[in-house]
Design a protein around this nucleic acid. Structure first.
Lengths: 224, 224
DNA sequence: GTCAATAATCATGTATGCAAGATCGCAAGC
DNA sequence: GCTTGCGATCTTGCATACATGATTATTGAC
């Protein structure tokens, strides 16, 4: 075999996690994955180590690898970190955006608008990520953009749930409009503030949802 | 051997890099390291992969691992990212600092003061990192604090050079005082602004130093 | 003397083997 | 009936082996 099994495996596993085919908390058995992908354990292990380093997988020594499962505390912290990263991106993007960046942003925003008008949550989920990624790209700071993207991906499985909250998609889109306005008029601090609030509210809504689900589960447990 | 070779190797290599025993750009030969540490290539590879994921090492496929060498562009970007992370930490720390956090900060600041009064650059370099780490810890957000710490370590080899700029240590300490004042008075936005400027100026001074060194090297190349 | 092509060498990437620790099941005791 | 101790099984972590691509050295031509 040609020598590029590890990156291929890493991407395949990451895709599986992001697409929800591998669910948070699920065990990742080395031999099982090796058989499934037709390789030995070695490149599997190396891919898992890389995913663990990026936070998508958790490796417990001598106890195996698991798809990362963020608890409430970690979720709060991650959304807060994300809100700060996005705010930073917004401030820099407002100052440095090129005409191409602006076009890309407006296209992504229009695609979000289309998803909203169709009521298509799944599409909005994807286009929303693109809109934010367009902001990262406009910072002209690849290091910062890469960090923002990495954390976006980390939270992606949880955001997906979050958008199912009633009317959240419309509210999110309205916030995008305000962010875009601030960005294209060069108001970096305003864009930062709006992005911070936009991401934080997502985190808070998500936690509300999470605790509701937990209460529900507990109620079921008591009833059953 | 007992089953913790990989983390031990990772820490040893990271220490070597942070302490300057392994220099940016230096090749990390797997068999050489394996012999030096008395282990096989497998745990060496796993440690290198982890270090690559955290940015301290660069792995070029089929071409080996090297101690990360940041170019001017990456340095600018990294310092800018760091300035935003520190600003975020400052804002949150000003709001959430516990009395213990405040004490730790003041102790770290006093230790910096002592290093300044002794003119001890090497000690200041260490205490400075502690002062900043105390701010991260005061955010009550371990995820954010861990990210800030990781990037602090990434830039540490370069900061060390930077402090040798004349009078930089005194200026840095004066800035710390302003940051501390803003933090203990709960002025989050002010603390954020001062931290951002503090880190950015380090980056800029460092780049000045870097280009000066490069010019010097070129002049020598022309002369020789 | 320099450059290019080719062969030898070497390092990386992957596969496989093996030992130690973790998990699971079963049985014995309370 | 529940818990605890012991043993079997399984998985991980590291070592070793091998193949392929990169690197270097050598040789021949210009």
């Amino acid at each position: 075999m040609r020598g590029d099994a590890t990156p291929r495996l890493r991407e395949a596993l990451e895709d599986d996690i992001l697409a929800g085919r591998l669910k948070p908390g699920q065990r990742l058995d080395e031999v099982g994955l090796a058989e499934r992908f037709g390789v030995s354990r070695t490149p599997i292990r190396e891919a898992l180590i890389q995913l663990a380093a990026s936070g998508m997988v958790e490796i417990r020594p001598r106890r195996g690898a698991y798809v990362a499962l963020l608890g409430p505390r970690q979720l709060i912290e991650s959304f807060e970190l994300m809100s700060e990263l996005e705010a930073a991106c917004g401030r820099l993007a407002a100052r440095r955006m090129t005409p191409e960046d602006r076009t890309a942003l407006e296209v992504a925003h229009a695609d979000c608008a289309h998803a909203v008008s169709c009521g298509d949550i799944e599409t909005y989920y994807i286009e929303n990520a693109r809109f934010h990624a367009a902001i990262y790209a406009a910072t002209a700071n690849r290091t910062l953009a890469a960090e923002a993207l990495r954390h976006q991906r980390l939270l992606q499985p949880y955001r997906r749930l979050q958008l199912r909250v009633p009317r959240r998609m419309d509210a999110s889109f309205a916030e995008h409009q305000g962010i875009l306005d601030a960005l294209v008029t060069g108001q970096g601090d305003l864009a930062a503030e709006r992005l911070r609030a936009h991401v934080l509210v997502q985190g808070e809504r998500f936690l509300t949802l999470l605790t509701a689900l937990q209460d529900e589960a507990e109620a079921l447990a008591r009833a059953g």
